[in-house]
Write a protein that binds this DNA or RNA. Structure first.
Ligand SMILES: [Mn+2]
Ligand SMILES: [Mn+2]
Ligand SMILES: [Zn+2]
Ligand SMILES: [Zn+2]
Lengths: 139, 139
DNA sequence: TTTCTAAAGGAGAATTATTATCTTTGCGGA
DNA sequence: TCCGCAAAGATAATAATTCTCCTTTAGAAA
């Protein structure tokens, strides 16, 4: 089972392993395209028909707080979630609302190199992420 | 008056020049830190005590649509606005919710160079922006 | 195993940000 | 100056999220 690691993580952080937490985490992993709370509810409603909307939000918050999930910025008024915890960038398609992961160590190296040489005065950088907007070519 | 340009722009785009539009635009320019609709309402309520909340949102939308303002992404559930239309990046402070502009043509050049050489398969890039999180050093 | 209890879930109300509707106002062309 | 339509105002509606309060349950302890 691929959620063994997740269960372990919950325990390590002193959080209870509940079927709801596991289902939500698995949903975020399964649902590509950085799902919304609504996407997650729809997805797991087959297994957990009675899961409460408030519970989903609460669990998402808890998991983000404990670094088991990430929130993904976007210009819409809906938060989206990501199970990929490794630092990475995002490709945004404005037309389709698709968000894809983009990982490029070479580029990261170039950028972090640049900022070790050229500091931003008055600002201590913790993290840099690229938002690449454009469109996915179908075919 | 510094909003002459703005008035001109409204006319060019066939939009009426109203005191509310001017006030909102000036508020976004004046209020540094990429204000929210609420910030804007508070700011202009001295001059326009009766401005309607819905009007503020509608005007902000209109101005964004006509490229006279920009929306700024952030992880909170409130949209923020920017009068700086030139492409630029943002410095985010998680602690204080401050968002500052960051402009660096040299860096932009390096990045766009990188992507002319190394394409992302299946994706047509329209724009790249950096989100730099960290903290502002107070003095 | 059974018991206990704090943590977590469920139901639904409340809140927040935003959008929509509908009426009134006023910008700006003629 | 007049007029029509775009835009503003008031307020209701919606959407996403959070809160409250009560019930359930994970998991530690007995
Ligand atoms: Mn909202
Ligand atoms: Mn919201
Ligand atoms: Zn991602
Ligand atoms: Zn800006």
């Amino acid at each position: 089972m691929m959620s063994e690691y997740f269960r372990e993580q919950l325990k390590e952080k002193g959080l209870k392993v509940t079927p709801q937490r596991v289902a939500i985490y698995e949903a975020v992993v399964e649902l590509k395209n950085h799902p919304t709370a609504e996407n997650i509810i729809e997805y797991i409603s087959k297994i957990h028909p009675n899961i409460s909307v408030g519970t989903v939000y609460k669990i998402l918050d808890t998991l983000v707080e404990h670094h088991l999930l990430n929130k993904v910025k976007n210009e819409k008024d809906v938060m989206r979630y990501d199970a990929v915890m490794k630092k990475h960038h995002h490709l945004y398609c404005e037309e389709t609302d698709k968000i894809a992961d983009f990982d490029d160590p070479e580029l990261d190296h170039i950028i972090s190199d640049y900022f070790t040489k050229k500091k931003i005065k008055g600002f201590k950088i913790k993290d840099i992420s690229l938002q690449i907007t454009g469109e996915f070519k179908n075919k």
